Simulated scan of single mutants.
Amino acid sequence: MIVKFCTLSALSALAQSVPGCAPRWQRGNPYTRDSLVSSVDVVDRAGTETVVTKNYKCISGSDLEPTLSHCSTYDPSNLLQASVAWTDNGVCDENAPAPASPTSALWSGVGCPKSWTEGAPYKAGELAEVDGAVFKCSTILFVNAWCGTRDYKPGAGLFWTNAWTRLGSCDGGTMNPTLSPVFQVLTNHEGCPKTFDSSFSHYEANDKVSVPVTDAVSVVYKCSSDLHESRWCNQFEPGRSYNLGWELVGYCDGTLSPTSSPAFDFLDEISGGCPRPYSSASLYQPGDQVSLWVEGATIDRAVVWECKQYPHSPYCNSGIHFSPGSENSHLGWKRKGYCQGSQR
C-alpha cells in the first residue's frame, strides 16, 4: 500500500513538472535564436514507437545577428536538421499553458510604423511593422526593390534578412508624425536646398536637392560623393529608380520659393565674364576654365567648367565623350558655377 502511494506521488510530481507546449513549428515563420517551438516526434522505446510532442529551442544564429538563423527552414522533427538548428527541451504537455517566448527589446523610435504591405514600392531606409516588430528596408542599391515582395516579407519570407533589418518591437501606438515613417530616422537639414529639377542635367557629386512631400516639409537628397555613382544623378530622380546616384540625408521645413531660372539655381555666379567656350580641338591644362552654353536656356548665361588637377587632367583632352557636360565629364572636369557677359 505504501509502495503504491509513493508511485502515484512520483507520477503526480512528474506530470506537474512537464511544461506546456510552445506553438507548433511552421516552415517560414520568423524564428530567431532562442525562439521556442513544439513539434511531434516519434520515440522508439524497446521496439515500441510512441508519438509525443516535444519543445525545441532555436540555437541557430549568433548573439550579434540573431535573425541570421536556419530555424525558419530547418524542421525540428528531422533528426539531421534538428541537430544543426535546434536543441531538444523534452516532452511537453499540450494541455498545460505554453511557455513564454522571448521578446525583443523596444526599438528606439516612438510607436509603430505602418504594417508591411505586399507589392508596396518601399524606399531605401523605409520602416514597416509585422506582428509588433519594426523592420528597416535595406539602403543598398537595388536591394530595396525586394522589400515589397512575398519572399522578402520582413521576419517571415525565406530571404527577408537580405532586404530587411529588425530594429526591435514597438508599443502599438501610431508613429508621430504619420506623414512618412522615413522621418523617424532622418535628421533636420536646417533649411531646404533647391528643389530637384528633372530638366537640369548638370548635377555633380555632393550636390544637394530637396523633394517636397507637403507644402511645408521636404526630404533632402545628396548626389553620391563617388565619381562613378554620381553620374546617375542626372538620369534618375531622387527617391525613385532605387535611388541610383542619390542618398537620403534628412528632411527640411519651409516653403520652397519658385525661381525663374531653375537651370542655374544650383550654381554660384563667377564674376569677370565668361571664359572661352569649350573646344575639343584645344589643349587644356589643370585649372583651365571653359564655358558651356546650356541648351534651351532662356537667359544669356553659360556654365563654367574647370579642368581638374592631375591625375584627372588627362581626361580634359580625351575628346567629346569626356567633354564638359557629357556623361563622363566628372572624370576630368569640375563644374565651378555660371557666368554671363563677354568673354575674358
Rank of each mutant, 00 (worst) to 15 (best):
M1G: 15
I2Y: 15
V3D: 14
V3F: 15
F5R: 14
F5G: 09
S17L: 09
P19F: 05
C21T: 11
P23N: 04
R24S: 13
R24C: 08
R27E: 15
P30Q: 08
P30F: 07
P30D: 05
Y31C: 06
L36Y: 09
S38L: 08
R45M: 12
E49F: 08
V52Q: 14
V52S: 10
T53H: 10
N55I: 06
Y56N: 05
I59G: 00
I59Q: 03
G61M: 03
S62F: 02
S62V: 03
L68N: 10
S69P: 07
P76D: 06
Q81Y: 10
W86Y: 08
T87H: 00
V91M: 14
C92M: 09
D93F: 14
P97E: 03
A98D: 09
L106I: 11
W107T: 05
K114S: 15
W116K: 05
T117N: 06
Y122Q: 03
K123I: 04
K123C: 02
E126V: 00
E126L: 01
L127R: 02
E129Q: 15
V134G: 03
K136S: 12
C137I: 01
T139V: 09
I140Y: 08
V143D: 00
N144V: 05
T149E: 08
D151N: 12
A156C: 12
A156H: 15
G157T: 00
L158Y: 12
W160F: 11
T161H: 08
A163N: 07
W164H: 01
T165G: 06
R166D: 04
D171I: 08
T178F: 14
Q184L: 13
E190M: 15
C192S: 06
S199H: 07
H202K: 14
E204D: 15
N206E: 13
V211K: 07
P212T: 09
P212M: 10
D215Y: 06
A216R: 12
V219L: 05
K222Q: 15
L227P: 04
R231P: 04
R231F: 07
Q235R: 13
F236C: 10
G239M: 02
G245I: 00
G245M: 01
E247I: 14
L248N: 02
V249C: 06
D253I: 04
T255Q: 13
T255D: 13
P258A: 15
T259K: 07
L267C: 08
S271P: 02
P275N: 04
P275T: 02
P275K: 03
A281I: 08
L283K: 11
Y284D: 01
Y284C: 00
G296C: 04
A302R: 08
V304L: 08
Q309G: 13
G319K: 00
I320G: 02
N328D: 11
N328P: 05
N328W: 05
S329Y: 09
K336W: 01
Q343G: 02
